[in-house]
Structure formats: C-alpha cells, structure tokens
Amino acid sequence: MSFVEPNKVLFKYRLDGIDQSWVEAGNRRTAFYSRLPAGTYRFRVIACNNDGVWNTEGATLSFTVAPFFWQTWWFIGACSLAASVAIAAFARHISRRRMQRKIERMERQHEIERERARIAQDIHDDLGASLSRIAMLSQPGRGALTEPAHTTAMLARIYNTARDLTRSLDEIVWAVDPKHDTLDSLVDYMGKYAHDFLITANVRCRLDLPIDVPPWPLTAEARHNLFLAFKEALNNAVRHSSCDEVRISLALHADSFELVVHDNGHGIEPASNEAPAPGGRIASGNGLQNMRKRIARIGGRFEISSQAGAGTTVSFTVITSRPRAGAAPGPRS
C-alpha cells in the first residue's frame, strides 16, 4: 500500500489450477474468471509499491465453486441408472416383438394347416362319399338294364347325388375363398342357400334381414362353423318339424350379431329321460349337440327353444371383432 503515489501500485494474481503463471493486472484491482468448474480453489495476489518493490508473500483467498445439480454424483448416477433401465427395457421390447412375430407366424401356419385339414376332411366326407355313391349306382347288374323303371330310378338317384355333390363343392369353394370373410357375404350366401333348399323341400322361406348388412370381418373357421350349424338347423326343420314355413332373421348388436331360425312345425318333444332347460330350451340329439359344439368352437352361444304345436326357434349368437357404430339398419324381407 502506498499513500504517496497509489496509482503506481501494481498487482499480479494467480488462481491455482487455472492460471499457469502470474497474471499481470497493472493497477487494476479486479480479476475476472468465467465458467469455473466446480471445485476448491486458492486465489493469490502480490503487489509492488511506487518504488517497484514486490511483496512476494501477498494475500491468499480460498473458495469453493458449488456444482450445478446435473454435475452432482447422485444426478450422474441416476442418469446412468435410467439409461441402463431404458436400454434394458428397449432390448426387452425388441425381444418381445420378435417373439410375438414368431408366435404370430406359428399361429398363421397352424391356422393354414388346420384349414387344409378341414378342407381335406370336407372333400373326403362330402365329395368322396358322393363320388363313391355315383360309382356304385352307375354299375347295376346286367338284369337291371332290362327294367326301365329300375333304370329310371337309378338315374334319378345319380342325378340327385350329382346335384348334392355340386352343391357341396360350391360350399367348399365358398368357405375357402378369403373375399367372403365378411358378415354381409355370409348372410347373402346363407339367404340364397336357405331359399333354394327350402323351395326344393316345398317349404316357404321368409327372410327377415337388415337392408344393409355391415362388412364385419369373420374368419374362415367362423364362417364355416356358423354355416354348417345353420345348414343343420334348416335340415332339422325340414326333416323333423313338418313345417310349411321357416323364418330366418338377423339382429345386429354393438359387439355381436344373432342369427335366428324359426319354423312353424309341431315342435320338439323332450325325451322322457331329459328335463327341459329353463325357458323351455332343450338340447337333445346329435344334431343339436353338433350345432352347439360348432358355435362354441368360434366363441359363440347356441340356444334352442320349442313348444309342442308352436314350432322351434334356434338362435346363434356370435361375437364380432369390429363393432358397428350407430344404430342397426332396418329389416328386409
């Protein structure tokens, strides 16, 4: 310190760990440092008087710069842990996606194999049996050729078998065609089938269907099982109910649809050793059990109710994978 000529007092300073040598400050009494890393520092200052004599001991100031929160050990550790968890979760997600794709491929392959087995079974049961019957009817005894009445009957049976064979082949082709995997296509095909089948049996067919059936997606298995159950219901009505009218209706719900087949025949009498189910429903006979199994196989619900002299009502309820928004369209006849 000099009171004679204070403007000749000179300073040098040094911040240990930052400055490599003393910094000439002249007569400036301030030092500037920016963006000091977090840590503990020692600031040293020496000065000389107006005679140029330096004080080598100088003055010392120790201070600490606190770190920002993102520079603390706990924040770095938390970030490292979060990064590790994120990498592990991402790796697990990728592994699960790969496993899901593998499972989906296996399921599709299994579905294809099951569909192929079903087609082979249909061909064996329907086409094979019909062709065998035609072959047997086409080889009568030599004496039968001299009997016109017998020959005519044989030809009539061959014609009926060939017609049934053609119908079975049409059903198989329809069942495997993916462009028919919608509800509207199924309803249209069943309506045409019911009309042709019932007209041939001399039974009046009444269709109570929506004007616009939505194209809800259906699997080939669902279409096939529902159609076979529907076909069985029509066959039972024609063969066992002595009806002269069958009414077929379709009701659309938020997440399902209900197909109902009702005949005005004499109804079904429960077997003596079977008690009727609540609501008058009954479930006896192989045909009814087959319908129940087919609908249960596609996750649906099968119900049948009948009263003596009041006809029989068969109901198939199927859950859909894509609910229809808005109200259901009106019926058509």
Rank of each mutant, 00 (worst) to 15 (best):
L259P: 01
H124R: 12
G143Q: 15
I158G: 01
E274S: 04
L226R: 00
D196Q: 14
V261D: 13
F68N: 09
N290A: 09
D177H: 13
D196Y: 09
F43Q: 00
R297K: 12
A86L: 15
T146M: 13
I158H: 03
S256T: 01
V173W: 05
P323F: 02
A129V: 04
N160P: 01
S333V: 04
S305K: 13
P67N: 07
P37G: 02
A162L: 10
N202S: 13
N7D: 15
Y13A: 12
R28G: 04
I295T: 05
R96M: 15
A135V: 06
W22T: 04
I298T: 05
A31Y: 10
I248Y: 06
I211H: 11
I103C: 06
R116Q: 14
R204N: 13
G311E: 07
S21G: 09
P331Y: 08
I158R: 05
T166V: 09
A275F: 03
S284W: 02
F63D: 00
F11Q: 07
L165H: 11
S315G: 01
R142L: 15
E111P: 01
E111F: 06
I134N: 02
L127A: 08
A201G: 05
T64M: 00
N264M: 05
P215R: 11
A156H: 14
R28A: 11
Y41E: 00
P329T: 05
W22F: 06
K231C: 02
L183Y: 03
G58D: 04
M154P: 01
I87H: 06
W73M: 05
P331S: 08
R114I: 07
A31K: 09
L169N: 10
L81I: 10
